[in-house]
Design a protein around this nucleic acid. Structure first.
Length: 842
RNA sequence: GGCGCGGUGGCGGAAUUGGUAGACGCGUAGGUCUCAAAAACCUAUGAAGGCAACUUCGUGAGGGUUCGAUUCCCUCCCGCGCCACCA
């Protein structure tokens, strides 16, 4: 009697154990095979104490399906796993509980590993890496030293974002709406000496390199916006009655005849000099400016938002001369001018920039129109709605009058350069990367200071520069490492009396900027990876990564890649040739899952109820991979039902057809076989395009048809070859079920072919039979005036014969009825696709 | 404000070199089985009209191109994401 009860809870752990024992997908990095290679990369995750999330399941499963599919096509697939294991949560947890991060992190990794294995993800565990392991961060530190030696890692004093809660510096990117991205506390500005990586050295290549890669357009756009390259001109203005000059960056110099003021950021040198008295000014002006600087500094990002777009400022008493027309433009200080952009100084053109307009009206500065827009308004600009920022024609601008703004820009730039009043420049938003963190749970910055306070990189033989363990976890405002006796003693022992270590650790983005390189040679103790290994696998063929990492991680990884290439370690420019993003799995309420909303779906519970195959397949079936999709508790059951039906159907079929190999197929069975091959064709086509939802839908159609054609408890009389095709086709999606059925099928065969592999996952991907996917009868929809009225069934040979098709269509009763009241004017026939009869009423 | 993405049944979604809109799944209704329920299975299911055959309408709104538009063009509306006083 055939077993027809699908029991995933029982069969899945059995196969998981066998695969693990057989090391089925292990040790692929150093393979000697010359087969086509494929590096599939999953964005490694932070192992949080909360365990695996359904969102992780989606992207892991998607790549796992690809990995299995390509392996079955005979390719060498490298599909490694690792952990972005340093970071704040573990340290904050340690502050709360006293449990060291190394312990909680290892526990979390263990939990994640168990869950991932239960899911049947075919990772190569032999190449596993964790950024917190000394064998890993030794090379993170080594890369730091290489950057240092090339002058690309440097110490700089600067205004930094400081989170009072986490007691650490944050990169600009980690400040969200003026608050710490981790804890939500308002960020304040602080002046500190910090370590930076000079990513700006590569800014142009970070732009041009995007042309080489197959990434979603939106992602490229994000990167471009972040780098923020803008071409413009720096105009030098003489300050009247002074030796000083002020340089302003503008991308719209053609409006310069309309310039009526200069505004400087509070950080601007001229302003600083005024405040300190280096530049002469009446005492009350000096004091006002000094007060303004202090007030601006104290303002948090939140304060700035609270006061909205309201402009504030102080007049310096000085004027700058506009060389074009000799106009005296008052010089103001205002915090709406950003110290970090351009030169920290702007030339105000109120008629053609809303912010400048607001400032001018606030302080009664003149407004001069120099562009007439599409609305033809030539009047004085007195309302904000009249401010003309778009296309237009120049007026009141002497030699520019009558030109459109674009040619005027070019002409003005030429003019300014000729006169020596300005210089074309390119401006970028991208800043150097601040990597210092006053935290414990990270890779120590491998730097020691001599007794004079000069930095020196830690010597290679002292790497890894170990993270000390004799520390206390208290939020003290400085790195806990400051209080490590061992750390300080180690430095003096190795470098001499009076030397001290750098107490800061590195931003975890440093760790994650090169892990994909390490994967290829994860146990190498001599190099970060063997050149041969790197050449063999890189660049990555497909990177699956959440949209939240679009900007920073990718930018930093690309920077590291380009740097290591320039150092001669790599031979490619871009690390990730193709990239795709998985969408977010939302809660059943359509909102982002979060503990506080109580809408979190726990993958463990789904597995317990339905099994891992159902969880995997449901997530793939939910919709397009890249879309955000809400979880549906009831829809999961639909996928479970499908797998159950597959199991039952195949088991019945195995039983019924075991000894009928030589028998001819019945017409019904042949129809099912045809459907099987059409399905195979579609699935084979969909998987590489990551269209898993439609691939699964097609499989469901097949099972529906098959079931309908079946005799109760007897199947339809298919042969072993057919069952084998179905099972192999389902293997990437439902690896456990497929393995079980594969073995049942082999057991049923009295004479197993000797070449049959032990596991379906090493079997060959089936090939669809071209003869079976074509049909000899086809149906052509017949339209009248673009509306389908009937279908014409003809033989495939006839489909090219327009005369016959049109004639036959007119014979159709429904069409004939329509033609009784309509006159046929013409017909449009797309062979094999559609026939449209164009008529007019009689 | 800038950049990007999207809008199709009760729900998730299919279908675009322009060619049968709503595949597949969920939900719902009715049924089979059962003492009953659950599970499973069967049938129906875009809306309106009609006993029915069928007809009309229908892919955010309005125009346009076309024999034919969810798909292409124009003008809007709405939602989401990211960045945001970036000169």
């Amino acid at each position: 009697m055939t077993k027809t009860l699908y029991n995933p809870q029982q069969l899945e752990p059995v196969w998981q154990k066998r695969w693990e024992e057989a090391e089925l997908f292990q040790h692929t990095a150093h393979t000697k095979s010359e087969a086509e290679r494929l590096f599939l990369l999953f964005a490694f995750a932070y192992p949080s104490g909360a365990g695996l999330h359904v969102g992780h399941v989606e992207s892991k499963t998607a790549l796992d399906i690809l990995a299995r599919y390509h392996r079955m096509h005979g390719k060498q697939v490298f599909f490694p796993v690792g952990w972005d294991a340093f970071g704040l949560p573990a340290e904050n947890y340690a502050i709360k509980t006293g449990i060291p991060p190394v312990t909680t992190t290892q526990n979390a990794i263990d939990t994640f590993s168990r869950q991932i294995k239960r899911l049947g993800i075919s990772y190569d565990w032999a190449s596993e890496v964790a950024t917190c392991h000394p064998e890993y961060y030794k090379w993170t530190q080594w890369i730091f030293v290489q950057l240092y030696n090339k002058g690309l890692a440097y110490r700089g004093k600067g205004k930094v974002n400081w989170c009072p809660q986490d007691q650490t510096v944050l990169a600009n990117e980690q400040v969200v709406n003026g608050a710490c991205e981790r804890c939500g506390t308002q960020v304040v500005q602080k002046d500190l000496e910090q370590w930076y990586f000079k990513i700006t050295e590569y800014q142009d290549e970070l732009i041009s390199g995007l042309d080489q890669v197959d990434w979603p357009e939106a992602t490229k756009q994000h990167q471009l916006n972040w780098i923020g390259k803008k071409e413009g001109i720096e105009i030098t203005y003489q300050v009247a009655d002074s030796e000083e000059t002020i340089i302003c960056f503008t991308s719209r110099p053609e409006t310069n005849f309309g310039a009526t003021f200069i505004a400087l950021a509070p950080e601007h040198e001229f302003v600083q000099k005024l405040a300190s008295g280096q530049i002469e000014a009446p005492e009350e002006v000096r004091q006002d400016i000094a007060d303004y600087i202090t007030a601006a500094k104290a303002k948090s990002e939140l304060d700035r938002q609270m006061e909205g777009r309201k402009k504030s400022g102080v007049f310096t008493g000085y004027y700058a001369i506009n060389n074009l027309n000799g106009a005296r433009m008052p010089i103001w200080v205002s915090d709406f001018v950003l110290g970090g952009f351009g030169t920290g100084a702007l030339v105000g053109v109120p008629a053609h920039d809303v912010r400048d307009f607001q400032f001018a009206t606030q302080f009664d500065l003149p407004i001069v129109r120099v562009v007439v827009g599409a609305d033809g308004d030539t009047a004085e600009v007195t309302e904000e709605s009249q401010v003309q920022e778009d296309e237009g024609t120049m007026i009141n601008s002497e030699f520019l009058d009558g030109l459109d703004i674009h040619s005027a820009t070019a002409k003005m730039m030429d003019h300014l350069e000729e006169k020596g009043w300005g210089k074309r420049v390119v401006s970028y938003k991208l800043r150097d990367w601040l990597i210092s963190r006053q935290r414990y749970w990270g890779a120590p910055i491998p730097v020691v200071y001599d007794p004079d306070g000069n930095p020196h990189p830690v010597k290679d033989e002292h790497l890894p520069w170990l993270l000390p363990t004799d520390v206390e976890f208290k939020p003290t405002g400085e790195s806990p490492l400051v209080h490590s006796k061992e750390f300080i003693e180690r430095t003096e022992r190795l470098y001499g009396k009076g030397w001290r270590p750098e107490f800061d650790t590195m931003d975890t983005f440093v760790d994650s900027s090169w892990y994909f390189l390490r994967y290829t040679d994860a146990r190498n103790t001599e190099r970060f990876a063997d050149p041969e290994q790197l050449a063999k696998w890189l660049p990555v063929d497909l990177y699956m990564i959440g949209p939240e990492h679009i900007v920073l991680h990718l930018l930093y990884s690309r920077f590291f890649t380009k740097f290591l290439r320039d150092e001669g370690y790599l031979e490619f420019d871009e690390p990730f040739m193709k990239m795709r993003h998985q969408g977010m799995i939302l809660g059943p309420d359509g909102k982002k899952m979060s503990k506080s909303k109580g809408n979190v779906i726990n993958p463990d519970e789904v597995i317990e109820k339905f099994g891992a195959d159902t969880l995997r397949m449901y997530e793939m079936f939910m919709g397009p991979l890249e879309a955000d999709k809400p979880w549906s508790v009831t829809s999961v059951a639909g996928v479970y039902r499908f797998l159950q039906r597959v199991y039952k159907l195949v088991m019945i079929e195995i039983d019924a057809t075991a000894d009928q190999e030589s028998t001819e197929l019945t017409p019904t069975a042949l129809d099912v076989r045809r459907k099987l091959h059409r399905t195979l064709q579609k699935v084979t086509d969909d998987i590489p395009k990551l269209k898993f939802n439609t691939a699964i839908a097609t499989c469901m159609e097949l099972i529906n048809e098959w079931e309908k054609a079946s005799q109760p408890n007897q199947g339809v009389g298919l042969q072993r070859v057919d069952l084998s095709v179905l099972i192999r086709m389902l293997a990437p999606f439902a690896p456990f079920l497929a393995e079980e059925l594969y073995h049942q099928l082999n057991l049923s065969n009295p004479k197993p072919e000797t070449s049959q592999p032990e596991t379906v996952h090493l079997a060959e991907w089936p090939v669809w039979d071209a003869a079976l996917v074509t049909t000899d009868r086809i149906k052509i929809p017949v339209q009248i005036n673009g509306k389908v009225r009937d279908q014409l069934e003809i033989s495939a040979e006839q489909q090219g014969d327009t005369e016959t098709v049109v004639a036959a269509a007119q014979e159709l009763p429904k069409i004939a009825a329509w033609l009784e009241t309509e006159t046929l004017i013409k017909h449009i026939y797309v062979p094999g696709k559609i026939l449209n009869l164009v008529t007019k009423p009689r």
